[in-house]
């Protein structure tokens, strides 16, 4: 009996090993590519963050000088707070705008129009990111459409300062992420069983109660996935703040970019990049429960 089991077990193990070897064969190109061009550069970058700039080269003696530098100079650590502030505003406003829109698309628009509405809703996605930021500059500039309209209606007497400000950055971001969040929330809402809402109504829930007790809790995974994506892209973006926000209140990516392109201080830029990655990691841990739940 036991010997029979063993031979059987051996054959099974052999088959499993052959299967695993094949799988690893398929996986290795992508894994090696990611190791070579993603992990290795990041490892080098992390070690650079403990070096210091000297002349045009680097001093490879390990030190925390860059991190200390970041902690004491307000223009640097202040940029992190600017980033966090803009990112949180963007994420919050985008969710508040995207949720009703996604809700209407999913439950109120007749089925035959739904696809068209969705395609239209994400159409501006396909303009180039840079061009879209520039287009918002056109809209918000002192002589732009918004100011001209407000002057014409008579709400204001002279142009309001919108472009090159934090408001402009948040506006541009909100535009982009409202589209993104509409997609993730919509995708979550349409895959919900329509009978959940029927059941709630049948058991006596009013429209608001059924939204509060059933729909909202069930759409949290879609919101969290979208919010996390928004957070990650928004806090790491250089283009939108640079074009729309101007150079007065820098965000972290602008400060990093500046260290690379103007000061050629790669070690300091590395240290600030590490800090940015840590912030994202914290956000990931905070939302990990929901991100994983969505995969179930």
């Amino acid at each position: 009996m036991s010997s029979l089991n063993e031979t059987h077990g051996d054959a099974e193990r052999l088959a499993a090993r052959r299967d695993a070897v094949r799988g690893i064969g398929f996986l290795s190109p992508a894994t090696l590519w990611t190791m070579a061009f993603f992990v290795a550069p990041l490892v080098v970058m992390v070690s650079y963050s403990f070096f210091t700039k000297r002349g045009t080269g680097v001093d490879t003696a390990l030190s925390l000088a860059n991190y200390e530098h970041f902690a004491v100079r307000e223009v640097l650590w202040g940029s992190l707070f600017n980033s966090l502030e803009i990112t949180l505003w963007t994420t919050g406003i985008s969710i508040l705008l995207a949720y009703p829109f996604a809700y209407v698309l999913a439950f109120r628009v007749p089925e035959r129009w739904r696809r068209l509405c969705l395609v239209l809703a994400i159409l501006p996605f396909w303009t180039s990111y840079i061009v879209r930021s520039y287009a918002w500059l056109l809209v918000l500039s002192p002589t732009g459409v918004v100011n001209q309209s407000l002057l014409w209606i008579g709400l204001i007497d002279e142009p309001v300062r919108l472009a090159y400000s934090r408001i402009a950055t948040v506006m541009g971001f909100v535009h982009f992420f409202t589209m993104l969040l509409t997609l993730t929330i919509y995708a979550n809402l349409v895959q919900l069983n329509p009978r959940y809402r029927l059941a709630a109504a049948d058991l006596g829930a009013s429209g608001w109660q059924s939204f509060y007790y059933v729909l909202l809790p069930l759409s949290i995974p879609g919101i969290v996935v979208g919010a996390f994506t928004t957070f990650v892209i928004c806090i790491g973006d250089y283009i939108m703040p640079q074009i729309l926000g101007g150079n007065r209140e820098l965000v972290l990516p602008q400060a990093i970019f500046f260290q690379v392109s103007r000061n050629a201080d790669l070690p300091l830029a590395s240290a600030m990049s590490v800090i940015l990655m840590l912030v994202v990691a914290v956000a990931y841990l905070a939302s990990a429960r929901w991100l994983r739940m969505d995969r179930l």
Binding site: P41, I233, I235, G236, D237, V280
Partner: peptide, 13 residues
């Protein structure tokens, strides 16, 4: 989950 900016700088370094 990593900003393009960081991937770019990593590859530059």
């Amino acid at each position: 989950t990593v900003s393009y900016l960081i991937i770019g700088i990593g590859l530059l370094i």
